[in-house]
Amino acid sequence: MNWLAIGAIYRFEMSRFFRTVTQSIISPVLSTVLYFVVFGSAIGGRIESVEGVSYGAFIVPGLVMLTLLQQSISNASFGIYFPKFIGTIFELLSAPMSFIEIVIGYVGAAATKALFIAGIIMITASFFVELNILHPVWMLAFLVMTAVSFALLGFIIGIWAKNFEQLQLIPLLVVTPLVFLGGSFYSISMLPPAWATVSHFNPVLYLVSGFRWSFFGISDVPVGISLVAVAGFFVICLAAIYAIFRTGWRIKP
């Protein structure tokens, strides 16, 4: 393993993040505050508690997941797309690095940034609602696994994208709707049975559900299934990246 090279990429990416750290933090914090004002206070006041949890607290895991997914994807996709765009990717390809090392560097940095912001969201949320975390270790495990898996997805998107529009396409068109429909702001038990069934095809449901379980001990799907789903997603992304580097798809003619 070329750890020095992994470290170089990681540090380089993190320095990019800290160069614009205010921007990186302000927007997720602001949107979280808005969600709390709208859903937590304005609407939440009219909603009874969900399975014994106040609505304001109930949406926290969903909000954290929403930000975590967006951040992991956008950081990782931009991280690898930008060198492709400006041409500096030649250096990565000519360096004595294996693809695993390149991925660890970029995905590791992207996941770290996303986790950093997720932490800030939780701190922000704790100003609005009282958060008691039932299973902190599992909570952390879900956070890390999700951040890494979706950073992998972001990496794939970054390799696939041929322009900045495509870079935005998947997060906007696929991920955000899936998060909203994945029970971030409601329990799927509130839905009509048919829609509840449809929701089970949404992978994000398993993430949010498992994550919420680690907070409150309540979940839409059994936590074991959530774990399997996250692990499965991780493996699929990893396999896709392996195939990309083996064939040089969109990076190496």
Partner: peptide, 10 residues
Amino acid sequence: RFSRGLFGKK
């Protein structure tokens, strides 16, 4: 420095 690191040099 980044380039040096990529090539695995201290």
